[in-house]
Design a protein around this nucleic acid. Sequence first.
DNA 1: TTACTTGCAAACGTTTTGCACGATT
DNA 2: AATCGTGCAAAACGTTTGCAAGTAA
Lengths: 144, 144
Amino acid sequence: MIETSATWLTKLKANGYRVTKSRQTVVEIVANSKHALTPLELYDLARKKHTGLGLVTVYRTLEKLEELGLVQRVHQPQGCQAFITAFNGHQHMILCSNCGKVEFFAGDNLDPLFLSIGEKTGFRVLDHWLQLFGICAECQENKA
Amino acid sequence: MIETSATWLTKLKANGYRVTKSRQTVVEIVANSKHALTPLELYDLARKKHTGLGLVTVYRTLEKLEELGLVQRVHQPQGCQAFITAFNGHQHMILCSNCGKVEFFAGDNLDPLFLSIGEKTGFRVLDHWLQLFGICAECQENKA
DNA sequence: TTACTTGCAAACGTTTTGCACGATT
DNA sequence: AATCGTGCAAAACGTTTGCAAGTAA
């Protein structure tokens, strides 16, 4: 998905950020990853393409991408440091516990549920997180 | 809820752990809190009752309580270090974005949804997290 | 009495900051 | 040319570990 990378770089530029080799490398990797990546994992991958890259730059680039809504943090039992492409609109995630692959799915009609919970608890519901964990099709095959 | 504290202490003892003043203090505070507490917050609260307590002991006690399924970690946008009483069976959480209060609610019947997601994505769904965020009844009133 | 638990200090891994140099616009 | 971005080193932060002394059983 070279297209996504390009879009991200355009957005960075549009928001007054400069397009540098470091940022290009980081963007290219995150934008094309189907797995959530920690800053360190991203750093290791990125250094294969741009040896001089510093870990600090990875952190600072992720900060900007998050600010622009291009990446989001993924919460998992093992930890919450990993980032993945943010999807537009409200989407929910399903994560493979074996290989770490992340897919998004639309929320179907959960609104009635939230309404009823709101009534039961007295809360005014503003947001929600729904995440599923399981084994992806590929990993199911490979284990058989 | 003195009852909960006592139950927890009993469970600790039943699992070969000793009941000490430090553990009693930590247990009493977590078991009675309606808010998720970070180790540091818990430490500060606990030291009001037991001055000599060390932060390390808070960490180690939380570790044991988590192992025994008495507390669970709470994931929030601001961070994922806070702990709260774990409920039996699978429950979902609703959190007040204003005061941090946490309530649990039963999952209604979400299984059909998970089944349909499983079919669409090819995943074998094993677990799920559902969390709602909003403003609790009390905070709604206080803002009016 | 024995083994577990404690708190301190130190170590650790991750994330952030200060700074002079380098690169983008 | 001006400003923004970089990488290094050091600092800061939360968490874990080693250990000798203290305490529960």
